[in-house]
Design a binder for these strands. Structure first.
Length: 743
DNA sequence: ACCAAGGGTATTTTT
DNA sequence: TACCCTTGGT
């Protein structure tokens, strides 16, 4: 039984208001997750079946956290509450019912990389001049349309008389055709197709309306039109829709987020109850006041002002440096001194920047200073070449219609199959209206292939045998077989370069993740694994318990908090970004940047340091930037500006610094070369010793209780053989299986 | 079919 | 600066 006494009056009100539409305007750090989880607990206490509660978040990390907190609060009863992201919710629904829209339920999910490949093909087919219509731009136009639930036909109609837009509509049309041919959906499709499904199949919608009688949406300010539609359809029957958000933290306009969803909630649901959470439990009042002042410069927001009864704390620090090197040096030095004084651990620090490119300098300095760090974002783990290659093999096994996947790996490792051969196969597939892979199976019949068909044969034989194997093998076994049979691993090993070494490490990491999946998923399957992998963001991998400094963009930082926060690159042209300043609707865009700034400031619990550089290298050019307007929006009473004047600065002996810098760069480069891809994250760590021994009773998440039969100590992990009461004898890896001793 | 080199171009944020 | 794509050579 959860206790509600520790909630403040507004929080309590939000928890107790269970029926009808509810808008919770939750300021930064006002305890919204707490409210949401307690609300779930309360609903269950009131006799609501947990199975009928749906909580939607944006990231897997947020979902995981909520899941954990719900479990802790309500115990086993909470496990059937459906907590997941928009995208995975939609995938789960589509996997059941998308056949009604003419897709196969084993559809692939395409990431931006795959989308680009499709778009290339589309442009070739339609003979689009990619000098004028850039693939990137076409894709973003399509994405925008999907966010707004506009289909190709509608776009075509609305483009009447506009040649340019008509062209885009034609591309959109063909792009969808290609996706369907590949039995694939892109990210935006996941939402849009689900909405389509609901609109076309009332009985399916009804089914889910009945199921989800209580719906909660987190980060509501970031929903786009399609997501809003999805939620309103689901909630339209029982109307128990609770949305939580903060219009001041709406930072995904570029991705289609419609701030109107939160600003107009009360218009759409006139009977909505509105509750504001304005007490902040996170930051000092200096930090909070600075945030309030900055965001106050925005128009068209819901009026609110956060307050706290935490102490005043230190003023917000601001320093401007001569260049980006010194900026990085200062930040890293500052962190080091906190550590040395024993004031804080590495993990208490976060460095936040506007663009991913800024991470590099900090990374170099960290390596030099021997500070453990983790970079979030940049190239997603699953977007790396070697990982994508291996996933493409798995996808090919799983979904024979995914041409992008097949094409990706048909000549990796090299099988001597080139462009000409592929075109012939593709033409043949088109002529007989079969999939690309099926055409490969008939390689001998394809005219003009000649010796090409002999080269194709080993590939199809391999895939066919893997498909056969899939029936009874785990994903781990499949992956290992691929690595061996294709010679992929061997090739990298023979290469012997540091880069190949890094790739091999990444592959090991992938194997770890697969093992983890095989052993912990409810019902492990190849399709299930691919699905899980398709929807992870880098932020999802942030582990709270390991001790390192975190570097990430301001966007990724939303929802997190750190005692010490550094907001770097506070310069006009960088933050706010150049694009936003020169944009056609600069007013709107700058407001979005300001909200981003607000998000950054409110991440800090104890101390906030903002820095800028007069000079910095940007895309190969030296830029001279002035201090960001956002700094100027913070009144002096909350801000301590310790920037040195240029004159003072000039007097300083530069020599020493320059030397130091060179040295540092050298060292950094040396170790950067050793690991060209960010710090390796090892998810599987061999425990020093296990808490259980042979003969002990243990409990496994999926298999239930059992008795330990045998423990084999391997070099990297313990292999534990357990006889489960109901699931039989299993061999498990200790670091993944998370066995708990039962007393 | 494969590779290396060079030119051109982009750069904001990401589920 | 760094990547991507085209080009041209073998």
């Amino acid at each position: 039984m959860a206790s509600y006494d520790l909630l403040n009056p507004e929080q309590k009100e939000a928890v107790l208001h269970t029926e009808g539409p509810l808008l919770i305007l939750a300021g930064a750090g006002s305890g919204k997750t707490r409210v949401l989880t307690h609300r779930v607990a309360y609903l269950i206490e009131q006799g609501v079946n947990p199975y009928q509660i749906l909580a939607i978040t944006f990231t897997n990390k947020a979902a995981g956290e909520m899941r954990e907190r719900v479990d802790r609060l309500v115990g086993d009863g909470g496990t059937s509450v459906w907590v997941s992201t928009f995208h995975s919710t939609c995938v789960r629904i589509l996997r059941r019912f998308i056949d009604r829209l003419g897709y196969d339920t084993s559809f692939s999910i395409y990431d931006t990389d795959d989308q680009k490949s499709v778009m290339k093909e589309v442009c070739k087919r339609l003979q689009i001049d990619t000098k004028i219509y850039k693939e990137r731009m076409l894709l973003s136009a399509i994405s925008k349309a999907k966010d707004e639930l506009v289909n190709p036909v509608e776009m075509q109609l609305s483009a009447e008389g506009d040649y340019h837009r008509q062209k885009i509509a034609a591309v959109y049309q063909e792009y969808q055709t290609q996706l369907r041919k590949n039995n694939a959906l892109d990210f935006d499709d996941l939402i849009m197709k689900t909405v389509e499904l609901f609109q076309n199949c009332p009985e399916v919608l009804e089914n889910y309306q009945e199921r989800f009688r209580y719906i909660m949406v987190d980060e509501y300010q970031d929903t786009n039109t399609a997501q809003f539609k999805l939620v309103s359809l689901l909630a339209s029957k029982y109307r128990n829709l609770c949305v939580v958000g903060d219009d001041d933290q709406s930072i995904y306009r570029f991705r289609g987020a419609n701030i109107g969803n939160i600003l107009n909630f009360e218009d759409v649901f006139p009977d909505a109850k509105v509750i504001k959470l304005e007490q902040n439990y996170r930051s000092t009042s200096n930090i909070l006041n600075a945030a309030n002042e900055v965001i106050h410069h925005n128009k068209g927001r819901k009026d609110k002002r956060l307050w706290t009864d935490n102490g005043e704390g230190a003023p917000v620090h601001f320093r401007q440096f001569q260049n980006a090197f010194e900026e990085a040096e200062h930040v890293v030095g500052n962190i080091t001194s906190h550590i040395q004084k024993g004031e804080a651990g590495y993990k208490d620090h976060a460095i936040l920047y506007r663009t991913n490119a800024q991470s590099r300098l900090f990374e170099e300095k960290m390596i030099y200073a021997n500070i453990p760090y983790k970079i979030i974002g940049g190239v997603n783990f699953y977007a790396r070449k070697e990982i994508k290659d291996l996933l493409a093999y798995l996808k090919t096994i799983d979904n024979g219609r995914d041409e992008i996947a097949v094409r990706r790996i048909i000549n990796v490792p090299k099988r001597g199959i080139g462009a000409t051969t592929l075109t012939r196969v593709s033409d043949y597939a088109g002529a007989y209206d079969i999939s690309f892979y099926d055409a490969l199976l008939r390689a001998e019949e394809i005219p003009g292939l000649g010796r090409g068909s002999a080269k194709i044969l080993p590939f199809t034989v391999l895939i066919q045998s893997l498909r056969a194997k899939q029936e009874h093998a785990t994903v781990t076994e499949l992956l290992e077989t691929i690595l061996e049979e294709t010679g992929y691993r061997k090739e990298l090993e023979l290469e012997g370069t540091e880069e190949a070494e890094a790739r091999l490490e990444n592959i090991d990491e992938l194997i770890n993740k697969v093992k983890d999946y095989d052993e912990n998923a409810e019902e492990p399957s190849l399709g299930g694994f691919l699905e899980e992998v398709a929807l992870v963001a880098d932020i999802d991998n942030l582990e709270e318990d390991s001790d390192h400094v975190v570097l990430m963009t301001l966007h990724s930082a939303k929802g997190l908090e750190f005692p010490y926060v550094y907001m770097v690159g506070m310069e006009e042209g960088l933050f706010p970004s150049f694009m936003s300043i020169v944009s056609d609707d600069a007013a709107e865009e700058i407001e979005e940047e300001r909200r981003l700034c607000y998000v950054g400031i409110t991440r800090a619990k104890k101390e906030l340091t903002m820095t800028a550089a007069r000079q910095r290298m940007l895309r190969g050019e030296v830029q001279y930037n002035t201090v960001s307007r956002f700094i100027k929006e913070i009144p002096d009473e909350y801000l301590e500006n310790k920037s040195e004047s240029p004159a003072q600065r000039a007097r300083e002996a530069k020599e020493q610094r320059i030397n130091q810098r060179k040295e540092a760069q050298l060292a950094a480069r040396r170790s950067l070369r050793a690991k060209p891809f960010e710090t390796k994250q090892v998810t599987a760590v061999k425990a020093d010793k296990l808490e259980y021994g042979v003969g002990d009773r243990v409990k496994h998440l999926r298999f239930g209780e059992g008795t330990v039969l045998e423990i084999i100590e391997g070099s990297r992990d313990y292999e534990v053989k357990v006889s489960f009461d109901s699931a039989g004898v299993k061999k498990l890896f200790a670091s993944f299986a998370k066995l708990k001793k039962v007393y």
